[in-house]
Design a protein around this nucleic acid. Structure first.
Lengths: 203, 203
DNA sequence: TAAGTGACTATATTACAATATGGTCACTAT
DNA sequence: ATAGTGACCATATTGTAATATAGTCACTTA
């Protein structure tokens, strides 16, 4: 197995200049898109030279990762918020799935430039995306655990398999790269797929 | 609802020249790809002028549709063959899913150029692809019906919903456009997703 | 009438030179 | 040591002129 070592972060992780770069990037990436924004643009915006930016980030992509990561964290937050107060594990799952799709869809329509970063990040396997997907899996795992404890869900199937399978079912709607192909299904799919998944979880 | 009228076929549908065009296209598309093959290439190959080709096909794409359609029909045939002798509806489903993924994957690796046509056809909603997807749905429907009759599957859920949901689950692996993103899962996914689907079908 | 085409146009694609961009490094200033 | 940069290079991107292609049509031939 090939070990994918994550790049060593460059420069101090807490630094006002670092924050300025991220702030400028958030604005430029959102307005002009990742490709159309140059590192020089960001440098000019914060009043430093391009070379100085590279004291804090090893590559342009690593700046993109931060922006992408923030974007995906916002989606995760929306998912969490959509789930609070769900009375049962089943309902938790329904709401989680629905919120995931809604948050991504909303991003697609309301901040298309940032969405595109997330999509291409998913295509290029950026860490930010892997972290997001891992988080989704964790949420699924937690819901299954809850449901199994309360007797709401069956307990025969190995829990890892259950989680992986559900994750695969959600993938086309939670992964921005794939969601693009399914925008016409964002209403229907989460509902009937939730139904199917919950039937599969019945004890 | 917008009615998508399918283009009026041009020229006689049974004609040796038509067959020659399709034959030449099959070879050229497979060898050089759809984009790199020009209509003039095909004309030269069969010894007629380009203008004559347009007596039989309205557009280059409509030639592509035939090739694409044949390709997808071959996959459907492989699926059917993979299913024969399955003792139960459950087993039918497992084999169907597995065969669908295997056939597409094999096409990807062994006739990449034709695979690419199918993929871009799926992206551009060619009729050939819609026909393929409809056929997949029919196969699913038949399996569910069998399973319900024998008492193997539950009968409470509306059968259309069941079929649609299962179709959505298979989509990322049966649709060439989406399969590309999931090539690393072609072993695992059909198995654990079949398990999930069958659990959801349990009476 | 059926089989077949050369010559044509508007659009798409290519080739490639000019420019822009990501990224580095030796260097200055404090 | 810390903060910061101009000048530089290899590669990517763009602008654009030249070419190629999809598709049409009036026409010929048998």
């Amino acid at each position: 197995m090939i070990k994918k070592l994550q790049p060593i972060p460059r420069g101090p992780s807490e630094h006002s200049v670092r924050d300025q770069i991220v702030e400028a990037a958030a604005e430029y990436f959102s307005r002009y898109g990742y490709e159309k924004t140059t590192v020089s643009d960001l440098a000019k915006e914060i009043g430093f030279s391009k070379a100085y930016i590279y004291k804090f980030f090893a590559t342009k992509q690593s700046i993109g990762e931060v922006i992408c990561s923030n974007t995906l964290k916002a989606i995760l937050k929306a998912i969490d918020e959509g789930m609070v107060d769900a009375p049962t594990a089943s309902e938790q799952f329904r709401r989680m799935f629905k919120a995931a799709v809604e948050a991504s869809t909303q991003l697609f329509f309301e901040d298309r430039k940032l969405y595109d970063i997330a999509a291409s990040a998913a295509g290029e396997q950026w860490q930010a995306c892997n972290a997001y997907q891992d988080q989704i899996k964790k949420i699924i795992l937690q819901i299954i655990r809850d449901g199994r404890e309360t007797g709401e869900f069956e307990r025969k199937t190995p829990i890892d398999e259950t989680v992986n399978a559900i994750y695969l079912v959600m993938q086309p709607y939670s992964n921005p790269l794939l969601l693009q192909h399914n925008l016409d299904l964002t209403e229907q799919a989460p509902i009937i797929l939730s139904n199917l998944v919950l039937r599969s979880l019945a004890p």
